[in-house]
Amino acid sequence: MVQKQQVYQSHGVTITSLHRNVEVKEFETAQLSCIYQVERDNNARLEWKKIVGNHVSFVYFNGLLMEKYKGRVEMSGSSIRLRDVTREDMATYRCEVAAAGDEVDFAEIDIKLSVLVPPAVPTCKVPSSAMSGSRVVLTCKESDGSPPSDYTWFKDNKRLLERPAKDLAYINTSYTVNQKTGVLTFNPVKKTNSGSYHCEAKNKAGGPKECSAQYMQINDLDVGAIVITVIIIASVLSLCGFGMYYAHRKGYLGNSRPSKGKGTNHTTVPPVKEDFKHTKSFII
């Protein structure tokens, strides 16, 4: 005889939410849903908390909204409506219910609120010129968008792919694009990379916003001119050295030590005149 297994199920407070991840545009209204049921305790305690990192603060406590939320937050049963949301409201909101008379006397649920903000016009940095064969970095960045923006670079109004090696049209290129950071890197840069560059930023809240196009000129390294310049400099230095040597041999530069030969001036100190007048002779 097979004995049936008995399953024991505890009863108590339970919580559900219509949406665990809420996304709204800035300055719109967010609905944070919290629906709870209790077994028999009709005096359950409801609390709402805002959690940002390790910081926890109350939104609704002891039957009252906190002062900073009055006029902007309203209770809808056990749920809350948050009007005119801003980026400062982005957080995890926790709904907690305690029912001391129930077998399971506590339950909680977390709801993540994301506020969508369109990007601002990005700041682009494009070098005006560079030498072919060098490593060149172009940057594009904006800080207002939420979530963070994705970036797209354009050369002469033609989009640069993030992975150019997969497109035959870009098979001979040597650049990489990071759509998350907005960094465009040429390594090495070539003369054919000369052109007008601009960048666009966009996210799910809006966009794209673009910076003004800037021209980048790539110049080839003129080896012949460098060789000629080196030869000219070496020739000038040789002529200067020969001229110094010739001038030294001819004595045009002067002597470092005084000579004892002709042309040496001696200062003669006249002897001191002593007049002795002997008025008398002493004969011993």
Rank of each mutant, 00 (worst) to 15 (best):
T123C: 03
R159V: 15
P148Y: 06
P147F: 03
S149H: 07
L116E: 04
T152A: 12
K125M: 01
K158M: 12
L160Q: 06
D150T: 15
D144W: 12
G145V: 13
P147Y: 06
D144P: 00
W153L: 03
V137G: 01
K155F: 01
A120W: 01
Y151T: 08
C124L: 10
S128H: 03
D144C: 12
T152G: 00
P147N: 02
V137C: 01
R159N: 02
V121D: 01
E142V: 14
C124G: 01
V136A: 08
K125C: 00
S149P: 14
V136H: 10
S143K: 14
V115Q: 09
T123Y: 06
L138S: 01
S114D: 10
S134Y: 07
L161N: 09
A120K: 12
L161D: 06
S129F: 14
S132A: 15
N157P: 00
K125D: 01
Y151Q: 07
L138T: 03
K158G: 02
E162F: 08
S134F: 11
R163C: 01
S128P: 00
F154W: 03
N157F: 05
K141S: 13
A120R: 12
D144M: 15
L160I: 06
D156P: 03
G145C: 10
A120C: 11
K125E: 00
K155M: 11
P122Y: 08
P148E: 05
T152N: 04
P122G: 10
E162T: 15
V136C: 11
P119S: 09
T152E: 04
R163S: 12
